[in-house]
Design a protein around this nucleic acid. Structure first.
Length: 163
DNA sequence: CGGCTTTGACCTGCGC
DNA sequence: GCGCAGGTCAAAGCCG
């Protein structure tokens, strides 16, 4: 599962290198504002706005990030079980893909699955399977476009990718 | 046998 | 206070 990618993803999506290293093409960039997905310079989140930029099944269509948000101020993100003021980075993107779990060079262990409101597709929760690494990701299909997979990463890896 | 997935239960915060 | 929604836990089962 981890040997299909030519390059591992970076730990931080903070530079042009991020777009160059990620194993799929980034075409949209968005930002988080607390729990809201803010669309910087993008009129709406609909896939039609970016569909003309998609050329391959695995292309990333939209990309978002949220730097330095505080777990303690967003208890929904932790199930309300943690109050530590831990700074994490969160970013998300939408891809067109048959498979839900993109091979990003890391090993992930599924720890939860949940039906969410206003979406007939379940949301899957994954955690990095490397000891000491607390990176998580959520994966769900877009309710408006089942071909699209929305992946949300949370935190930074404390180790190199396994590929 | 170890690692992973599945799945129901549990916990917490928020809105009414 | 209650119900809902989202996130996590953990036991059980599966698979290589």
């Amino acid at each position: 599962m981890t040997d299909n990618n030519p390059k591992p993803p970076p730990d931080t999506p903070d530079s042009d290198d991020f777009c160059n290293q990620w194993p799929f093409e980034l075409s949209e960039y968005l930002q988080f504002d607390d729990n809201q997905w803010m669309h910087d310079d993008i009129p709406s989140f609909s896939s039609e706005n970016v569909s003309n930029q998609v050329h391959q099944p695995s292309n990333v269509r939209e990309f978002e990030r949220d730097e330095s948000y505080f777990e303690g101020s967003s208890s929904r993100e932790t199930g309300g079980r943690e109050n530590r003021q831990v700074v994490r980075e969160r970013f998300a993107f939408k891809t067109i893909s048959e498979i839900e779990v993109l091979d990003d060079g890391y090993r992930w262990r599924k720890y939860g699955k949940k039906m969410v409101k206003n979406n007939p597709n379940p949301r899957n929760y994954y955690r990095c399977s490397v000891d000491g690494c607390s990176v998580k990701k959520r994966v769900e299909r877009d309710k408006d476009d089942p071909r699209c997979v929305i992946t949300t990463y949370e935190g930074n890896h404390t180790h190199p990718s396994s590929s």
